[in-house]
Simulated assay, not measured.
Amino acid sequence: MEKKPGMKKRICFIATGGTIACSDSGNGLMPSLGAEGLAAAVPEAGELCSIDFVQLMQLDSSNLTPAHWQEIAGAVAERHDAYDGFVISHGTDTMAYTAAALYYMLENVKVPVVLTGSQLPMEHPETDAKRNLLTAFHAAASGRAGVFLAFDGHVLF
């Protein structure tokens, strides 16, 4: 699909769980908020780009394994040509490991793939999730190819 000038970038938002998606279950925090619910908390992202949603998994990132990394990489590879960039919400416990694995698994990626998460759940009044997610969408719409982390107002590569 050829882009017309002024068209919004198409971003695929892949949600995997993590603190960013957690709610209090009565027995502690559990990932429960999906990709659409996360994006709804940052309406500015929808003004910046066109967003499609993939709820890939709903896990605490400490439970992710190399098989999950392959699933995430596969989801990006399968959709690579249809999007201008990807945002992947993820838990902070293993986000750096996932980013490193994706860096190698998606070695020739031609669009931005941006992982983000948060220290506090989206629903927490003092959350960092909104800022991190919005930073990730800006980075995904930037056109700079590669695998990145968006956190605390910074994009790391």
Rank of each mutant, 00 (worst) to 15 (best):
S61A: 00
R144S: 09
A101C: 09
F53Y: 13
A129V: 02
H124N: 11
D52F: 02
V42M: 03
E107Q: 14
L59Q: 10
H138I: 01
S118L: 03
E78M: 15
D60Q: 09
A82S: 12
Y104N: 13
V111P: 02
A96K: 09
E47Y: 04
Q119S: 15
A75I: 08
H154S: 13
V111I: 13
G37I: 08
N63D: 12
P121D: 05
A45V: 08
S62Q: 13
W69I: 06
G117L: 12
G46N: 04
E78N: 14
V87K: 07
F151V: 06
A75V: 09
P125Q: 03
A67Q: 13
M95Y: 00
A136I: 05
V155Y: 11
V87A: 00
T116C: 14
F137A: 02
G146C: 03
L59E: 06
N27E: 14
R79Q: 13
A41Y: 02
D93T: 14
E107K: 15
S142N: 10
F151D: 03
L56S: 05
E123L: 14
M57D: 12
G153Y: 11
E107W: 15
I72H: 07
Q55A: 09
E44H: 01
F151E: 07
A136D: 05
P43I: 02
V114W: 00
M122R: 04
A82F: 15
P121K: 05
P121M: 12
L59V: 03
G91V: 03
S142C: 06
Q70H: 14
H138A: 07
L64C: 11
S50P: 04
V114C: 06
F53A: 01
M95D: 05
D60K: 06
S50K: 10
A82Q: 13
A101K: 04
L156M: 13
L106Q: 01
A96W: 05
S50G: 08
T92P: 08
G34I: 14
G74C: 08
T135C: 12
V76Y: 12
L115C: 08
D52V: 00
E36W: 03
A39R: 05
Y83C: 02
H154P: 00
P121Y: 10
V109L: 12
V87E: 05
E126F: 12
L115S: 11
P125W: 00
I72M: 10
L120T: 04
D128G: 02
M122K: 05
M57T: 10
A75N: 11
A45S: 08
H90T: 04
Q58P: 01
M95Q: 07
D128E: 07
T65Q: 09
L29A: 11
H138V: 00
S32A: 15
K130F: 00
F86A: 02
P43A: 07
P66R: 02
D93H: 09
E71L: 15
H80I: 14
F86L: 08
G146H: 08
A100Y: 12
V147W: 08
Y97K: 11
L56F: 06
I88Q: 05
